[in-house]
């Protein structure tokens, strides 16, 4: 991320006047608040920030900011953001997604974004349900959760995004809870500042289809130990914790993807010469 020391900005400077479509009480309101607070703290001018998303409740967030945004098709936000960041390394690029968009239809891009390690930040608002289509199980849904599409539950083990991210090479891994907007803003800020691909899973309750997630606010707690730079250790901790450890869990130092040669561009005629007989 590029530092912009000049004028002091407020969270409201990063918010648009568009009224969210979210249900009252949705966790995503707090993620929006965290995002704008974090941007204000960074001081990056809104026109230097791009917020990229796919489809779903969470993916509506770009238009609620006063930044440049792209609300693309379902599941492809990471690819779109990768192209933007490579073409425009001067921008701060954030990708905002949900558990269906990011881990189901966009699952393959998640693996390769971690692997590629472009300097972007990936925030997934995880509520363990497809909300926009009105309550179907997502990859992170408990196997027993009953729904019209999967009566009696899916019977399928949930996806472990943080572990997958570590295994795939993400350079920064954290878990946050939307009900703690200051802490979430701090974590996202650190994710943005960390070089390479940073992944933040934000537990963001769905009050409409998963009202039982209201209990999350009492279940979450700070991760008991400092983040590690050892992905194996981080993965072991995540696989054995109670799922409510909040904080930065892993900081890596892998080289950041940079396909630019840095050399002085040659004229086109230099390329044509290879065809001449």
């Amino acid at each position: 991320m590029n530092e912009h020391p000049a004028p002091k900005r407020k969270a409201s400077d990063y918010k648009s006047e568009v009224k969210p479509v979210w249900c009252p009480g949705c966790g995503d309101y707090h993620v929006l608040l965290s995002l704008t607070r974090m941007l204000a703290a960074s001081g990056t001018p809104p026109e230097q920030v791009a917020v990229i998303s796919g489809i779903g409740c969470s993916s509506r967030i770009p238009a609620y900011t006063n930044c440049y945004g792209f609300h693309g098709v379902h599941g492809r936000s990471l690819a779109l953001a990768a192209g933007l960041k490579v073409a425009r390394p001067d921008l701060t690029v954030l990708v905002m997604s949900g558990d269906g968009d990011g881990f189901s239809i966009g699952g393959n891009h998640f693996l390769h974004a971690c692997r590629r390690n472009i300097d972007i930040t990936y925030v997934v608002m995880d509520n363990q349900v497809y909300g926009m289509t009105k309550g179907q199980p997502s990859p992170t849904t408990d196997p027993e959760w009953d729904s019209a599409l999967a009566p009696g539950g899916t019977g399928i083990r949930p996806f472990q995004p943080l572990v997958i991210a570590l295994a795939s090479g993400a350079n920064f891994v954290a878990r946050a809870f939307s009900g703690q907007p200051n802490e979430t803003a701090r974590i996202i800020h650190e994710a943005v500042m960390h070089p390479g691909f940073s992944f933040v899973q934000v537990m963001s309750p769905c009050v409409t289809f998963r009202p039982e997630q209201a209990a999350w606010k009492d279940a979450v707690h700070p991760a008991p130990v400092e983040a590690t730079d050892d992905p194996a250790r981080a993965a072991r901790r995540i696989m054995t914790d109670d799922g409510f450890n909040i904080g930065v869990l892993y900081r890596g130092d892998r080289p950041v993807f940079d396909p630019h040669s840095g050399a002085e561009p040659v004229p086109l005629s230099a390329l044509e010469r290879s065809f001449a007989l």
Partner: peptide, 27 residues
């Protein structure tokens, strides 16, 4: 590379088309 541009090998065509949309959105 010689012209100061870049090529990224994508994970699939779903990604490659979206990468070029992202780059073009950036100008």
């Amino acid at each position: 590379r010689r012209l100061g541009g870049t090529l990224v090998q994508a994970e699939d065509e779903l990604a490659s088309i979206n990468m070029i949309i992202g780059a073009s959105f950036g100008g």
